[in-house]
Structures are given as structure tokens and as C-alpha cells.
Amino acid sequence: MTYTEKIFSFGPSGALQGILVEPRGRRIENAPAILTWNVGLHHHIGPHRFFVALTRSLAALGFTSLRFDISGLGDSEVSQGDTRPDPERAIADVREAMQALTKQRKFQTFVPIGFCSSVDAAHAVGVSDPRVVGVIHLEGYGFRTKGFYLRYPLRFLDRNRWERLIRMRVLGDGEAAAEASQDKERVYVREYPTPEKLQSDIATLVARGAALLLVYVGGDTDYAYKEQFFEMIDERAGSNRVELDFYPNADHTFFIEEDRRRIIQRVGFFLRKHFGATERKTSTTAPGSNRVQPDSSPRVER
């Protein structure tokens, strides 16, 4: 095995539980620690065990990860007397994880990975905390744009859509219709930042030298083409600190294993590109000195 996994209890009275995944052999010196936590109400392993596969794969590349449950979900408990609203508590729990990793493992920098609803805490912590040197959003914020509407008719070239429509409407497949409707109900309702706020947040992150990977999928989402994000935040030129990826055939939770493998590979490539340059046999660098500067050109190791 290329990784070791340990129980990692932290937070007030050790109420927060997670699994610390560390490389067994080669590790990247001063690399940031990677953080993953619950998607919606899912346990911390993620949909289809996505975070287990991801964190183990990152350990093989030399990165340490913590996959954990935020208060009240999975195996973590809510501390007695904690009455904060869930979104506020989630942000505090991510900070607790960072603090515990600093205290117990000397990590100074972090990359939170938000997936669907967990993007909210990843984004909030990323924007406000200078220890965050990279942020990854999987299926994060998406707003319909002019480009989205212009491409909308292209959806009707997809044979899958017609097949679904015929099964549900013409053949009266009530189960499929019910499932499609339940999918809509299940979406975790949350407040998105406005496009202006998102633009300002991204500018803050980029100015700080943080690297961003934003992954979107097609299907029934509000995203239709790779560069839609730049149109969303009215940033035509884009930025070399912001990497976008669009998987038109994948769905919101990466139901197909091949899609999960591609995303995991992509995340690994992104992390190696931005944070893998400090791999050394012996470390003479102070903790945290791998912070990526805006003008730096990190060496990409393949």
C-alpha cells in the first residue's frame, strides 16, 4: 500500500472524527495538507467512496490528507452547548482541522476540497485564511450566463435526453419520473455568493497567490461549457492561477467509476503542478515556505 491511515480525533473534547491519510514512502516536503469533508449529509467517505479513493491516490503522490466529518454528521458529534447554525459551524470545523494538523503534524498550509455543498465552507475558509494556498471546487458555484443560454439548444442533440423524455413522458415510467423529481428535492438548498462577490473573492485568492481548480460537469446542471466560469465573474482574460475543467458527460456525483478516476487524476495533477515542486530528499526549508507566489513558475514533475 502507498498510504497509511490513522484515526484522527480533534476539536473540542475530540468530538470531530476523521481519517488522516499519509504517504507511506516518498512525501513532498512542506506540501499543504489536503482537507475533505461531508458532501451534503453524506458520511465523510463521499458519494461512491470518492474521498477514500481520492485521498489514497494523493498519498501515492506524496500528499497528506484528512477526510473528516463536520459536527453532527458521520461519526462526529456536536459539542455540548454549540448552537451555531450549520454553515457557520462547518467553517469553524474546517479551521479546527487546520489547527489540529498544525499542532499534531506541523502543517502550515492547506488545500480544502469542496464538493457540491461543501464548497461553501471551502470557499469561505479559502478567501479568509492566508494559510489556504489552494482551493478545489468540485461542482461549485454555477450561474447561468448568456453563453449558457446560447448553448442550451445543443442539449437536445443528446440522445440520452430523448430516451429519458420518452421513457418518462411517452411510456409513462413513473419510477424514473419520481427519481428525477426526488433528485431535485435532494439538492441541498444553499445561498450562493452573488457574481460580484464571487469575482471579488476570486480576485482576493489570486492576489494572495492561491491556486484554484474548479471542476464542473454537464448533465442537468447550470453549466454548459468550460469557460463559463470566467463569463460568470466577468473575467474574460482568465488567470493562470485559476484552472477550469468541464466534463460534459459526467454527472453531479460522478456516478460512473471512469469519471471518478479522471477527476482524481486531474486533482492529483493540479496539486503536483502547484505544490509538488518542493519535493526534496532532505528539508532545509522552514515550514510554510512552499507558499506559491503569484509570479512563481512551479516546476511540474511528471
Binding site: D158, D183, F255, I256, E257
Partner: peptide
């Protein structure tokens, strides 16, 4: 089969029997 239909994976997964509800 229904999940793949709803998620627009019907043509991609038809005839494949190596995955079940998102797992190998």
C-alpha cells in the same frame, strides 16, 4: 438502469455489467 437513465448515462452504460449503482 433507472439511475443511468435519469443521469443521462443510458447510452454509455448499456450492456455493461461491471458497475452497479456507482460501484464496481
Amino acid at each position: 438502469e433507472r439511475r443511468n437513465l435519469v443521469l443521462l448515462h443510458a447510452t454509455r452504460t448499456r450492456g455493461r455489467r461491471d458497475e452497479l449503482l456507482g460501484f464496481p
